[in-house]
Design a protein around this nucleic acid. Structure first.
Lengths: 250, 250
DNA sequence: GTCTTCGGGAATGTATACATTCACTGTATA
DNA sequence: TATACAGTGAATGTATACATTCCCGAAGAC
């Protein structure tokens, strides 16, 4: 509890609340009461309120009709739409990069990331993958790719969508345990990574966009099978606790 | 000043700040100081802070590095990207609606709006248009269209993009004075409106998406010519005061 | 019995005093 | 003369008292 005394209380409250939401401590739809939270966190109402405001900006909370906040809840449909949306936005970023031409230096850096992603497979043993390394490099790749179009507006909205834990490009990597299906997913994903960069280099905008969209659908398929198979394992994927079984979304 | 006494101070501060930002009273990049604003608005720091937080959520302000807020500024590139983004999102909504099938009742309602849009032209005189009526109906059309795909996630992000005054679907209507070019713009736009609905009815997803994107580019072209022609008239388009001449965006 | 009204409590809204942090400036010392 | 340290001020961060609003339940009247 008394771990980080130096940072300000707003950040502490924001972090603590985010953790509780993502890990299921505060299920979707839960109304958050300032006084109760203040007493619970041992932080006064002002920073708690500020934290809730930031989490609303982040998309994890929503403002309740008559004031106050509640935890945003997501149906399976919402989650697939968010992933689809990420694909659409990444596709747009890739298309714009192809159309206006990407900086050679930035492309070279992405090439380096691609090589290092390849290295995650290269253990000689089929099926053996450095999942953690892949996940980290994958996140880097997606960030760099989005930056290629040099559009702060696109980048901002993309970051926003990716901030939902289940919509992040690396969410499906963590969710995959070491079975044949997930191995094949990563093989296909990496082929798509290279194809996207190639399309951008060749100024093939439509191709770059289409691949980016299809690439996101790997995550969608992975989510759906994860959700069906390990329906009750909360550790299967980050933020899966946010997904409500049925009914209305936020 | 002492107009609406009943509503709470947060809303008053939010409204007042938004007005000042949109109309150029607070140019892009301006740092907002809580104390100064409090004294200026005659409202204490707490609601002012809350108002700034909401405007940041809305996209008109951004959080400054060391705390506090500043008015977000947009380059011409940012604005065109925002319009492009709206086209991409509306295109996605239209495609999804086409793919999954739209509700007949909702389609019928949109048909009514289309007829009423036609009526804005039907004065017999070529070139005479009910601009205000068209603008209002146009906004309704775009909202209804986005709702056809029944995706709260898509709808939410689209509303977010549209909240930037210059990226709203009706921004270009207001910006157009009664010249031949703007008349032709509205004629083309209305043809595209009908084509989008037809494509959705016929489950032609790719066509619906493509038209929605091209539709948004009317606004883009209109913005660019407005920006070049009437470069110094702040009333030419809502939110044009947010656009900074050169340099970095937020 | 039902409807209306009044009261109380709990929630957010507001004001403000106080704390903290950071940057700038001036002075003193090396 | 340059650098470092300390002081001062202004900004945001925090705590908390008080205001307001709204819902809900109980009691009374029709």
């Amino acid at each position: 509890m008394a771990e980080s005394k130096s940072v300000n209380l707003t950040k502490r409250a924001t972090y603590e609340l985010r953790q509780r939401i993502i890990h299921g401590g505060l299920p979707g739809g839960t109304r958050l009461y300032e006084v109760a939270l203040s007493e619970d966190l041992q932080i006064s109402r002002t920073p708690v309120r500020e934290a809730m405001s930031r989490l609303a900006e982040e998309g994890l909370l929503e403002r309740a009709p008559g004031g106050g906040f509640q935890v945003r809840s997501f149906t399976l449909r919402d989650v697939t739409d968010a992933i689809e949306l990420r694909g659409v936005l990444e596709g747009t970023a890739a298309r714009l990069a192809a159309e206006q031409g990407a900086e050679p230096r930035a492309l070279a850096e992405i090439g380096t990331i691609l090589d290092r992603l390849d290295a995650c497979f290269a253990t000689g043993t089929v099926g053996a993958i450095d999942f953690d390394g892949y996940s980290e490099l994958n996140a880097q790749f997606h960030t760099r790719l989005a930056e290629l179009c040099q559009s702060p507006v696109i980048l901002r909205e993309l970051e926003r969508v990716k901030s939902l834990p289940f919509a992040s490009p690396s969410a499906f990597v963590l969710g995959s345990n070491e079975n044949a299906r997930s191995y094949h997913s990563l093989v296909v994903a990496q082929v798509q990574h290279r194809a996207m960069v190639q399309a951008i280099e060749r100024r093939e905008g439509a191709r770059a966009e289409a691949i980016a969209r299809e690439h996101a659908r790997i995550a969608r398929a992975n989510l759906e099978s994860t959700f069906v198979t390990d329906a009750q394992t909360p550790e299967a994927m980050p933020g899966i606790a946010l997904i409500v079984r049925e009914g209305r979304s936020a």
